[in-house]
């Protein structure tokens, strides 16, 4: 492993060890996704679901579960008073990448579980599994890196938990739109050039993961 990656994996490992003690982040995200799919199932069990509406529901659940649970990684550092420790011993890029990597892992697990439940429990038919998978995975990466950045921005505020959700959702709006286009196409909606939504989502994921460390390194010192 190149030496520049070591601090990133050290931050990731710390997050993983903290999470493994309580599993609170993964269980919170998982529960929100599970309960939401159950509610959607209860609402729609007598009707046939339009692919566009189904895709909208899928991305709403993923976005809100991420906006609530993912910024935690930065918020808990401020609550426990350990944020200054990072400022003393680590570079902003390593801290951001380590935490973003952990959130991406968490979000990928949640997306896979949510997608499986969604396809089993809701009356939808998967027409293009590759587009569905690529779109979901790229969306999970983009959501995780955007929510991580929102958490980092909101962390020093006193109402940090509510604020991080309030600022991450507007930043994720366009992503929801791209996600709906790709997922609806994968579920059989005949959108003009709908496959481009998947390419757009991958591009957006790359853009957000690149932008995150740059912005974080600028707001690092306070």
């Amino acid at each position: 492993m190149p030496s520049s990656y070591k601090p990133i994996f050290a931050v990731f490992r710390k997050e993983w060890l903290t999470e493994s003690r309580t599993l609170s982040g993964i269980t919170t995200t998982g529960l929100i996704c599970f309960v939401s799919v159950v509610i959607l199932n209860a609402i729609t069990f007598t009707t046939k679901l339009n692919p566009l509406v189904a895709a909208g529901m899928y991305w709403m659940v993923l976005t809100f579960s991420a906006a609530i649970s993912l910024p935690r990684t930065f918020l808990q550092e401020e609550e426990q008073g350990t944020a200054d420790f990072w400022r003393l011993f680590a570079t902003p890029e390593a801290v951001f990448w380590g935490k973003a990597l952990f959130n991406i892992t968490q979000m990928l697990i949640a997306t896979v579980l949510m997608s499986v439940m969604f396809l089993i429990m809701l009356p939808v038919k998967l027409q293009n599994p590759i587009a569905f998978t690529l779109n979901g995975l790229a969306g999970a990466v983009a959501i995780a890196s955007t929510s991580t950045l929102a958490g980092a921005i909101a962390a020093p505020a006193s109402n940090r938990a509510a604020l991080s959700t309030a600022i991450s959702v507007p930043l994720l709006i366009f992503l929801i739109n791209l996600g709906i286009t790709g997922t609806a196409t994968a579920l059989g909606e005949g959108l003009k050039s709908g496959e481009n939504g998947v390419i757009g989502m991958i591009a957006y994921a790359i853009a957000t993961t690149t932008l995150g460390p740059v912005v974080y390194s600028k707001i690092w010192k306070s």
């Binding site: 950045l149 507007p170 930043l171 995150g212 740059v214 912005v215 600028k218």
Partner: peptide, 9 residues
Amino acid sequence: GYALAAFLP
């Protein structure tokens, strides 16, 4: 920081 992040959306 937010203004920079918000410019992309």
